[in-house]
């Protein structure tokens, strides 16, 4: 009885959250998946990042990620995990510069998955590349293989994790597009935070759905993949590179 009531409360809270949060449209996110249904292979989640809209001094996506996933904050050491970072790219000849938010690119052909000895690094049916920490042995071969430096190793014990984002010493981790949020039909934390600033530099959606805004934008404007030469078919695309 109480259980059902709590469930209803939770659902109501979630709905209220959706209705209240400003600037967030869930139309672009595919129809909600029931709790007991597996991720669909028809969907391919992806991001389109417009670097021309990304603010030089803005770090909304970075801090949202750290808060959501309970990652180290403040003065970052070389051993600290960073699931998303902003790479300042400068063309030395022309002097033109860009800020490029960089995270796991959720490749269709992920090298981290190829090299993982136990299969801990894997690609979900809907294209999200993530680490099954239950069978990760911490060999760090995926970190050697990833061209985007998207993975971090947890170098010390962790405390106070977000119950929805378990993370602990000795395993490798990286951006999983906030899979826990996607599974309840919410946007990744970085995308939500970016939208809240009004910049809307990040667009999340189903690359496979022709009706989705992300698919339409990619069809209309020139977009680029980072290290396209490696032919990994990343799920994160960039505009204005």
């Amino acid at each position: 009885m109480t259980d059902r009531r709590r469930f209803l409360e939770l659902s109501a809270a979630a709905l209220a959250g959706i209705a209240l949060a400003p600037g967030i449209r869930l139309i672009q996110v595919a129809a909600a998946r029931p709790l007991d249904a597996p991720a669909s292979g028809k969907v391919r989640w992806g991001l389109l990042i417009d670097t021309s809209r990304c603010g030089d001094d803005c770090d909304a996506c970075l801090s949202a990620c750290r808060k959501e996933n309970h990652l180290p904050q403040g003065e970052l050491r070389r051993t600290d995990a960073q699931w998303i970072r902003k790479v300042a790219v400068k063309d030395m000849r022309s002097g033109s510069a860009r800020q490029v938010p960089m995270m796991c690119q959720h490749c269709a052909k992920p090298p981290c998955v190829d090299v993982c000895p136990t299969g801990a690094s894997f690609k979900r049916a809907d294209g999200i590349v993530l680490v099954d920490r239950h069978i990760c042995i911490g060999c760090r071969y995926c970190m050697m293989a990833c061209p985007y430096k998207a993975r971090s190793f947890v170098h010390e014990p962790t405390t106070g994790q977000n119950p929805e984002v378990p993370r602990g010493q000795g395993c490798v981790e990286g951006c999983h597009l906030c899979v826990h949020r996607i599974d309840r039909n919410e946007l990744p934390a970085c995308v939500e935070a970016c939208a809240a600033t009004g910049r809307k530099a990040m667009l999340f959606g189903d690359l496979n759905d022709p009706a989705a805004e992300i698919a339409q934008r990619i069809a209309q404007v020139a977009t680029a993949q980072v290290r396209a030469d490696l032919r990994l078919d990343p799920g994160v695309r960039y505009q204005g590179l």
Binding site: D36, P38, D132, V179
Partner: peptide, 18 residues
């Protein structure tokens, strides 16, 4: 449950650790 949740995104509550 852990394998279903991590691998397939099935998030039924009955056997969820949380």
């Amino acid at each position: 449950q852990r394998d279903q949740t991590v691998r397939q995104g099935i998030r039924t509550r009955e056997h969820s650790l949380n």
